[in-house]
């Protein structure tokens, strides 16, 4: 079986996350920018404007703007979320489908713009760990229980991406084992 086909790398997932919108305060003025994905701007110094994450990253790196932290990038909200995730047997809805990637990106480029940046990063990692542990247990239950389908709500792309190659290949192998098994037994009876 050839590996590496159809598997996304974390960098590609991050690329998708960069389409999410964030609010920035520019420190320059510029007219509207017309992009394929939509118009951005106009930029007026100190007036909030919504831009895609990739643009925010670029502007921030050139020190052309200040970031407004996202609503959920807040210690209390995340503490609550973590508790909820911990108490709930199933996956809970995340504030953003790309929470992990966005946190990672913003923390690396603009930790000064986010209050309690360190704590938030730790909280996001904790939530991630809880969710991954849940994911692994449910995969194990899925394999052991000979289920044919599973429904997992609120999983994010990055989470799915870390287990996808292993899960699909395992199911393939299991299918082969089972198919040959049933084939083998029926044949031996014919003997």
């Amino acid at each position: 079986m050839e590996l590496g086909v159809g598997i996304m790398s974390p960098a590609e997932v991050e690329f998708l996350a960069e389409k999410e919108l964030v609010t920035i305060f520019p420190n320059f003025s510029h007219g509207k920018i017309y992009l394929i994905s939509g118009d951005v701007g106009p930029f007026v110094p100190s007036l909030p404007v919504q831009v895609p994450l990739w643009l925010a990253v670029n502007l921030k790196q050139r020190q052309k703007c200040r970031l407004l932290p996202l609503d959920w990038m807040n210690k209390d909200v995340l503490e609550e979320k973590k508790q909820e995730e911990y108490n709930n047997k199933f996956f809970t809805a995340m504030p953003s489908p790309h929470y992990r990637e966005i946190t990672q990106l913003l923390m690396s480029i603009a930790p000064m713009d986010i209050p309690h940046a360190e704590d938030i990063q730790t909280l996001i990692k904790d939530i991630w760990d809880i969710r991954m542990a849940k994911l692994r247990s449910s995969i194990d239950a899925f394999i052991k229980g000979e289920e044919t389908h599973a429904k997992l709500d609120h999983l994010t792309l990055m989470e799915i991406n870390t287990v996808r190659p292993l899960l699909t290949n395992t199911l393939n192998k299991l299918y082969q084992l089972r198919q040959v098994s049933s084939f083998g037994t029926s044949e031996s009876q014919e003997w």
Binding site: D140, T170, L174, L177, S181, F183, G184, T185, E187, S188
Partner: peptide, 30 residues
């Protein structure tokens, strides 16, 4: 899997054992 094609008396048990073993060990591998 190859052995399942031979006419053994306990083919069925072997095939069950193979899938069961795989499933039980999967958690550790993962």
């Amino acid at each position: 899997l190859y052995l399942l094609n031979f006419p053994y008396a306990d083919t069925e048990e072997i095939s069950k054992m193979l899938t069961q073993t795989f499933k039980n060990r999967f958690r550790k591998v993962m």
